[in-house]
Amino acid sequence: MARMKFLCDAERCIECNACVTACKNENEVPWGVNRRRVVTINDGVPGEKSISVACMHCTDAPCAAVCPVDCFYTTDDGIVLHDKDLCIGCGYCFYACPFGAPQYPQQEAFGVRGKMDKCTFCAGGPTANNSNDEYAKYGANRVAEGKLPACAEMCSTKALLAGDGDMVADIFRERTLRRSGRPQTWGWEQAYGAGV
């Protein structure tokens, strides 16, 4: 059985935010909720690297483990989804998640927390596939249509990949092999000097 995974190739990520807006567009995510965002380290200096982060769809999801109302479930291919009708907006999954994936759209200016929203791997939620209800609550269900998440499909440099973990790993492995022909990529020349 395939296991769905994301991978963001930091060598290719240019922080263009296509993944962020593709998700906003595809799922009509409101202002203030960021299912996906790009994180940059060493901004502005040599060694700057960016990586796109959303829900990692963990195999042993901490969000699911701590939810007091057990509104999470995992599909057979590893996508972690939740039922917003059950969600009480307690925020505990946000505490638990190491990636900050759970988001809470607010009703008013002063922090009343609404139902948790997060990346669904574009697989919707526990309601009829591709129904208006599903779209309103969870956004698109591309997986039910045989498509993959919009963020990865629209990544400007094909840094962000989403799909069967084995296939994603294949692509990344191939790239790594190609890059090994370029010691500069790994900082060899910086460490050992040119010509090594």
């Binding site: 509104c71 039922d83 059950l86 919707g124 269900n141 039910a144």
Partner: peptide
Amino acid sequence: YKGSDDPLL
């Protein structure tokens, strides 16, 4: 899990 069924499954 205590929520509704997901036809995706």
